[in-house]
């Protein structure tokens, strides 16, 4: 993979909120099949970088290329198609409480114009991948934290994204569930999806032994191929 062009290329990206500079000319490349862990203290700019990657916000300066395309120049009608290529998982799961596991995952396909037939085909597969086949009729309130996060991962995977972003996915979970989630993320990565994981979980970082990028005060302070969580 040495010399290969990165799929995600963040070039001198800055983000400013009024006078507050949150990201300061960050440059980062992520290649096909990589698993990148983003660490750093709260307020370092990890979540802002993620918001820029999913185009919830636009950078103040610099450019972000995904598969060679400058995503800050996407037209509004192109955004949904872009987002279907980027799965996202949050700490607070963001599930619809009045829908079952199956319906929560199906919802992502329904609102993306997928046919009923395709929905029926895809969902069992994705639920199996996260080990939730048996729980497909349960409502979110009947699930444990780990199970909820697995539903959220299933929903993120259902479009077969090139990139899966997980923002503090284990923040609300016990260590056992956190390990389950990290195993699932590794499995997804093994199947070819780029995983970008932002986390505070030291144990998770040390266990995964993947590329670790540390952000501090809006700058990348270290980028290690097989990093460990370093307390500074």
């Amino acid at each position: 993979m040495i010399g290969e062009k990165p799929i995600i290329e963040i070039r001198k990206v800055s983000k400013k909120y009024s006078r507050n500079l949150v990201l300061d000319e960050i440059t980062l490349g992520i290649k096909r099949g990589e698993f990148v862990i983003l660490i750093g203290p709260s307020g370092a700019g990890k979540s802002t970088l993620i918001r820029l990657l999913i185009q919830e916000e636009k950078p103040t300066g610099g450019k972000i290329f995904v598969s060679g395309r400058d995503i800050s120049r996407l037209k509004p009608y192109e955004l949904p198609y872009y987002r279907r290529n980027v799965g996202i998982v949050f700490q607070d799961f963001k599930l619809l409480p009045n829908k079952t596991v199956y319906e929560n995952v199906a919802y992502a396909l329904e609102v993306s114009d997928e046919s009923d037939e395709n929905i029926r085909k895809k969902i069992p597969k994705v639920l199996e991948a996260v080990g939730l086949t048996e729980r497909s009729d349960a409502y979110p309130e009947e699930l444990s934290g780990g199970e909820k996060q697995r539903v959220s991962i299933a929903r993120a995977l259902v479009h077969n994204p090139k990139l899966l972003i997980a923002d503090e996915p284990t923040g609300n979970l016990d260590p056992e569930s956190a390990r389950e989630i990290s195993d699932i993320l590794e499995k997804i990565n093994c199947q070819g999806t780029i995983v970008l994981l932002a986390t505070h979980n030291k144990e998770l970082v040390d266990r995964l032994r993947k590329r670790v990028v540390t952000i501090k005060k809006g700058k990348i302070v270290s980028d290690m191929a097989q990093g460990r969580y370093v307390c500074r």
Binding site: Y81, A108, S112, A156
Partner: peptide
């Protein structure tokens, strides 16, 4: 708003939004 946010994240088409 919760559902709208999810719609946005999963790439719901403009039609569904």
């Amino acid at each position: 708003s919760n559902e709208m946010e999810i719609m946005r994240l999963v790439g719901a088409s403009t039609f569904f939004a």
